[in-house]
Computed example of a mutant assay.
Amino acid sequence: MAVEAATGNSEQNKVTSGVVARVKICGITCLEDALLAIDAGADALGFVFYAPSPRYVSPDVAAEIIRELPPFVTTVALFVDAPVAEIQSVITLTQIDLLQFHGKETADYCEQFSRPYFKALRMSADLDVSATAAEYSSARAILLDAYRKGVPGGTGESFDWQRIPSDLSKPLILAGGLDESNIYRAITEVSPFAVDVSGGVERIKGRKSPEKINTFMSEVARANYS
């Protein structure tokens, strides 16, 4: 009984100190994959509204999926330099919870919608992470992703985590090439507020693998409570 109590206190301390990494599974294209992710313990689901992406989902389909979701799951809409009217339309149709901007959007642009947002930064060699993150003072978090020229995200590549500033002004969402083989190390070395995975839990582009999702989430739990 004492051991159980001690373990519970340790886990509670991790929760209250913000060490426990939350999980967003992105690139959801169907209800089956959404429910798989939720059943495995995902905190948030990402829907990609960027037509060139192999994980693109139409607003109509996303709205149908979201209507079937249980409560207490955050839904996130990903955009890349989208027209204002398009974003407004998606918000109205889907009633999405949170916006993720993955292009060259300015803070003023991101702030004009009726939803909280976070900003993705791609870790190019010349990026001043701290200075750029500070420009988005209204963001709920900053997502850091790998950089590949001409590709706004979903590269399946990681970046040098040593480049992440220790004094980042916003909660950190870590993305870029995360999968079952490196997520334990990512969480234990970086201690992000959340991690964002898409290709790392897929069986084919745009469809998730139950086995990969479950293994990934098991590794997250192992890192969170080790």
Rank of each mutant, 00 (worst) to 15 (best):
L93D: 00
T94N: 02
I96G: 00
I96K: 00
D97K: 02
Q100E: 08
Q100N: 11
F101C: 00
F101H: 01
H102G: 09
H102P: 05
E105S: 05
T106S: 15
A107S: 14
D108L: 15
Y109H: 14
C110T: 09
C110P: 12
C110K: 00
E111F: 03
Q112K: 15
Q112R: 15
P116A: 03
Y117M: 05
A120Y: 09
L121A: 07
M123G: 00
M123V: 15
S124K: 13
D126F: 06
D126K: 11
V129W: 07
A131T: 12
A131Q: 14
T132P: 08
T132M: 06
A133E: 01
A133I: 06
A133Y: 03
A134G: 01
Y136S: 03
Y136A: 02
S137I: 01
A139C: 05
R140M: 11
A141T: 08
I142E: 00
L143R: 01
L143E: 00
Y147H: 13
R148P: 00
K149W: 07
G150N: 09
G153D: 09
G153K: 07
G156S: 12
E157L: 15
S158F: 06
F159Y: 15
D160P: 13
D160N: 14
D160I: 03
W161K: 05
W161L: 01
Q162G: 12
R163M: 10
I164K: 05
I164S: 08
P165G: 10
S166F: 11
S166A: 13
S166M: 10
S166H: 13
S169E: 02
P171E: 05
I173N: 01
I173A: 02
G176P: 13
L178E: 05
D179Y: 11
D179K: 10
E180N: 08
S181W: 02
S181C: 04
